[in-house]
Write a protein that binds this DNA or RNA. Structure first.
Lengths: 144, 144
DNA sequence: AACTTATCGCAGGCTGGTTGCAACAAGGCG
DNA sequence: CGCCTTGTTGCAACCAGCCTGCGATAAGTT
């Protein structure tokens, strides 16, 4: 319900943006809105293909690019591997565990606090977190 | 003076580690200790080659790997491009400006403070900053 | 239905980094 | 000193992640 509503609105936005709505794009949108988490381009392709075979990686990358241009999607670099894409429904930053790869979403207010502290000290301010913070989750860090 | 002292000590450490000291390795070390800043593998190759031609990229990567294993060198990912290598003479983290690419080194005590705050909140602690923080320097952020 | 033009799939390319392997040479030993 | 073991080198080839060029296809306007 909510999901397909959101998709309908996105489809509308794409057309207003001068874009066309193809079966491939609809399938990609469905996966994106279904999966509330982060997806790599490759995972996205795999899942799209299970509904609509033969959608090519390039198609996915190109559509993700236009969605990013439109501000509906963002990608984050979680580490050495491929980037992860997510809807920009709410601002957040990411911490990735070096040990087990767990991704934790951290609140943007924390980042904002750090950013203003850093700005006072050095003039730098942290931007939307395009690169994840590396760390260790409580399990991998162990006691102490 | 100090530089070549440090190199001599490193050469010693390499031998104790069971490694051999070749002309290529000496040339790489010279560049590393000369350049107190961060260098990409490619820059390193170029500078090494100006002293000793035909040293191959692979050689540089492999030697950097062993230096990292020995804990003498670390690399940091500053953004989308190649990684930057530096001596581990002192612990520090990096902030990269999205706008102009300026790299600023930030004190590890700041990171430690953030890390313990995050740990209290989520159990996560930030590790040595293998990935740089993205941000905007005062010039690129503009006033306010 | 006709037509314009965005989008698609595919082949191929690019960057940053790694691997397999034969030739080479560091440095230990007699 | 010269021999010999074994770490190191250069080269070619490969890999992942992503992007580009291009002719074919199809969305959506009229």
């Amino acid at each position: 319900m909510t999901g397909s509503d959101a998709i309908d609105r996105t489809v509308q936005a794409i057309r207003e943006h001068g874009g066309r709505v193809t079966d491939q794009r609809k399938a990609i949108l469905r996966v994106l809105f279904d999966e509330s988490d982060h997806v790599t381009a490759d995972e996205l392709v795999r899942r799209v293909n299970s509904a609509l075979p033969d959608v090519h990686v390039t198609t996915v990358y190109r559509f993700l690019d236009t969605l990013e241009e439109m501000g509906l999607v963002a990608h984050v670099h979680l580490g050495h591997g491929p980037a992860a894409y997510h809807l920009t429904t709410h601002r957040h930053a990411h911490v990735v565990c070096d040990g087990c790869g767990t991704i934790e979403v951290i609140d943007s207010s924390t980042i904002d606090r750090w950013s203003s502290e850093l700005r006072r000290q050095t003039g730098f301010q942290l931007t939307e977190q395009h690169f994840a913070f590396a760390g260790r989750c409580s399990r991998c860090a162990g006691p102490r």
